[in-house]
């Protein structure tokens, strides 16, 4: 491992952590979303540095490119940028509790066990990922187990995506036409549900 490698690794890691800190403290949702995009790019760089080039590429394409665009689209669709609505942080007690819980979570994850990685039998040879990627390209070593060893999980994932598409369409559509059936009086359907919700 060269010095440049270590420098890049710590640079992207520290930028990711700093951007995440900025992300959770921004008041405007748009600014928070853009800082989260910065975090995701840094994590993609860490993926590449950890010999996962294909995962880094789809991290940029899927997460930073698709999911965060959907988030920004919804933020702007709901028009949440107004100053009256964006001061949403909880009280001081919540901050203290959340900080304490975060410290506890960090401490629990960082307690060094005497044998931190006990499953030594599954350990692969050092740099075998690099040699395999050089031999077959970066995509094939991920794709081959995805379509052979984990084929059932892959098919279940397709069913999950179908369910998510159907659910999103059902939840997201306007239901004025279906709600204003023969049982409800015309013209009062929207205000009736709003008053009932309060």
């Amino acid at each position: 491992m060269t010095l440049f490698y270590h420098f890049c690794f710590y640079l992207f890691g520290l930028v990711a952590v700093a951007s995440a800190c900025v992300f959770v403290t921004r008041k405007s949702p748009v600014a928070a979303a853009l800082w989260l995009v910065n975090v995701l790019f840094c994590i993609a760089a860490l993926f590449v540095l950890l010999d996962a080039q294909f995962i880094g590429a789809i991290q940029v394409l899927v997460y930073a490119g698709a999911i965060m665009v959907v988030f920004l689209f919804v933020i702007m669709l709901l028009n949440l940028g107004e100053p009256a609505r964006i001061a949403d942080a909880r009280g001081t007690l919540w901050y203290i509790g959340a900080g304490g819980l975060a410290i506890v979570v960090l401490a629990a994850m960082m307690v060094r066990l005497p044998h931190p990685l006990p499953i030594e039998t599954f350990r692969i040879a050092a740099d075998s990922l690099v040699t395999e990627a050089r031999a077959t390209g970066a995509v094939a070593p991920v794709a081959v187990p995805l379509f052979t060893e984990y084929l059932l999980a892959f098919e279940v994932t397709s069913v999950l995506l179908l369910a998510a598409v159907v659910g999103a369409v059902v939840l997201g559509r306007k239901r004025n036409e279906s709600d204003a059936g023969p049982a409800s009086q015309p013209g009062t359907a929207g205000t009736g549900t709003a008053a009932h919700a309060r």
């Binding site: 990711a16 952590v17 995440a20 800190c21 992300f23 959770v24 949702p29 975090v39 994590i43 988030f71 919804v74 933020i75 709901l78 949440l80 964006i86 949403d88 942080a89 909880r90 919540w94 901050y95 509790g97 959340a98 900080g99 819980l101 975060a102 410290i103 979570v105 960090l106 994850m109 960082m110």
Partner: peptide
């Protein structure tokens, strides 16, 4: 671990659902 903890703090301290 640090990024996960920051995410936990974000879930606990914010009230904006998005």
């Amino acid at each position: 671990a640090v990024l996960f903890a920051i995410g936990v703090v974000g879930v606990l301290t914010r009230r904006n659902a998005i």
